[in-house]
Amino acid sequence: MAETAVIEKKEAIKFGKKERKLLTDPLDDNNPITVQVLGICSALAVTTGMKNAMVMAVAVVFVCTFANVITSALRKAIPKQVRMIVQLVIIATLVTVVELTLKAYAFESYKQLSVFIGLIITNCIVMGRLEAFAMANRPYESALDGLGNGVGYGIILLMVAFIRELFGKGELFGYKLIGAAPEYMVNTLDSKWFGWYQGNNLMVLFPSAMFVIAVLIWVHRAWNPKLVDVS
């Protein structure tokens, strides 16, 4: 502990190769969802539409970054015996801040995300990063790490939501893009491109998120073979 403390003092705050790696690693080699398998629950529930996925992604980036910074700043003061609870309290506080803010300024999203905002607390990414990184590193590096992991998570979330909303409803961010509307809709909503396309209801349901992520994992691992499960 003493040694690392000395080294830390020598290192100035800079943005070099190592720092860039902290930021980009979680986007690919160490992606929270497709590689570390953390934070799946919310990835499934909120990805029916781009809008909800976007709100969720921003919320997780916020919570992940700040929880990392706060924990890292307090890391020498946090007693080992109650480490877990202290970390959870920090996360829960940040999540409550997110909830209260959404309720005040984005009420529609708040209504739609409902209990899934609360579930950010148990989003294992946040907890996992606190335990694995923030407890042993300076706030600056921890911020980068939190940001990287939050964004790595958010990207997958948006990718899944993109596929599900486009093929499920033929919409993006709620705007009709492809496919004709069902018969009773004809007079009210214009069909745009590919009028023959029928929205695939399966894509809207929960299990489809599982399939989409499975395919994403397939593509990701085929493209980056060092991630393949050898066991």
Binding site: A77, P79, T93, T96, L100, K103, Y105
Partner: peptide, 30 residues
């Protein structure tokens, strides 16, 4: 340990209570 936990919970609940009070009227209006 007790001192740490006590300080943390006080700070946290004060912070949240402050925020909640500040935003309450907006919540009710929404």
């Amino acid at each position: 340990v007790l001192r740490f936990v006590l300080i943390l919970t006080t700070v946290v609940s004060l912070l949240l209570a402050f925020l909640q009070n500040g935003l309450k009227s907006r919540h009710e209006m929404n």
